[in-house]
Amino acid sequence: MAFENNTNLGRVEKMIETLHLIEKSATANRATEAQIRATLAPLIEALARERAKQDRVLSAALYLKLKETGDETHA
């Protein structure tokens, strides 16, 4: 089963909807920017870790492709 499927896309949509609810709650409760950041920190850190993994994979793939094509100056 492919990762990019309706189930996972639906999960992402739910995350976005939840973020909107948190933003609405922050506004209603007059949360400070620091309070909002503290609440969202675990999510932001998890997303950053995932992005870092993807960047490493892409960097390795690019390195191998450049090496394969003989473009050692950029590898």
Rank of each mutant, 00 (worst) to 15 (best):
L62M: 09
R56C: 06
L47D: 04
A60C: 05
A28L: 11
M15R: 06
L9G: 07
S25T: 09
E33D: 11
L58M: 14
R30G: 03
I16K: 06
R56A: 15
L66I: 01
S25R: 13
T18Y: 05
P42I: 10
I36T: 13
R11W: 07
E68L: 03
H74F: 05
V57A: 14
K53Y: 08
L66E: 01
G70K: 01
G10D: 07
V12T: 09
K65A: 11
T27H: 08
E45Y: 02
G10M: 04
G70N: 07
Y63F: 10
A52Y: 10
N5G: 13
E68Y: 05
N29M: 06
T7M: 11
Q35I: 04
N8R: 15
R30Y: 05
R37K: 14
R51Y: 10
A26C: 14
L9V: 02
A28C: 01
R11Y: 06
L9S: 04
K67R: 12
K14A: 14
E68Q: 11
L40Q: 02
R56W: 02
Q54N: 10
N5P: 01
L66V: 00
N8D: 06
T27N: 06
E17R: 12
E23H: 04
N5R: 09
L64S: 09
A52N: 12
V57E: 14
L43M: 12
L47E: 06
K67V: 02
A28T: 05
I36A: 10
T7F: 15
I22D: 01
A75E: 03
A52C: 02
A34K: 14
E23I: 10
R56Y: 04
A28G: 00
T18C: 04
G70V: 04
